[in-house]
Amino acid sequence: ARLPRSAVLKKILDSVKDLVKETNWDCNEEGMSMQALDTGRIVLVEVMLREAAFESYACEVPMTLGIDMEPFGKVLRCAGGDEKVTIKASRNDQDHIELVFENEEKERMSAFELKLMDIDGEHMAVPDAEWGAEISMPSSEFKKIVMDLAEIGSDLTIAVSKLGVTFTAQGNNCKGSMVLQPSTAVDKKSEQVAISFTEPLEMTFAAPYMKMITKAAALSSTVTLSLDEACPICVRYEMEDNAGHIKYYLAPKED
């Protein structure tokens, strides 16, 4: 698998490393994907890197690569953001993968080997939900709202109604709420706030987990929040050009 720039992989790692220490990457002809739970079983993260993300991608036989995120992060930090990354896994000796970073103009090449682990990762079945509400908005705006309100209180309530979407945080000595209305004024798609809902709803989540989730804003300029009172929230970041996505499912807090 060859990525034109290591930046995407670095951003993906940054988006999951607080939640997941080690995980299996499933490789098949479609691409590379992973699904992992945090230790508290409160958030599930799914990453899909489709073939379209790669400059070249070949997978003769489906493989599962057990990766420890810590050493993987250390190796990736040796790659310049603009360097090409090639990951090779051999079907003959499946105890390691090779990573090669190439910097074209500087004629520099570095090679690493990463030991693979035997991880009995359990996969969870995530049913396709009919969502009560869906919000798409700039990922940077969602990140700022979450980071700001997380300072106000540890519970983040998201309410959808005809008023728009209201984010509320409640602390011991302060409370704050921010209301976003659907924005049709702006023309740039990535700046728009779109809200659709079948009936008003309100759900509460742990702000510290939502903070970790917003780190994936580096991967996509827009984020989609899908809510339904019977389900965990789905926070989805779609990468450009159908390269793939990162999705988080966060369980709610309930009275």
Binding site: E122, M124, V126, P127, P232, E254
Partner: peptide, 14 residues
């Protein structure tokens, strides 16, 4: 305050 639920209340093993 509200009590945190885990994903096991919503998702089963595949």
């Amino acid at each position: 305050g509200a009590k945190q639920v885990t994903l096991d209340a919503f998702f089963g093993p595949r």
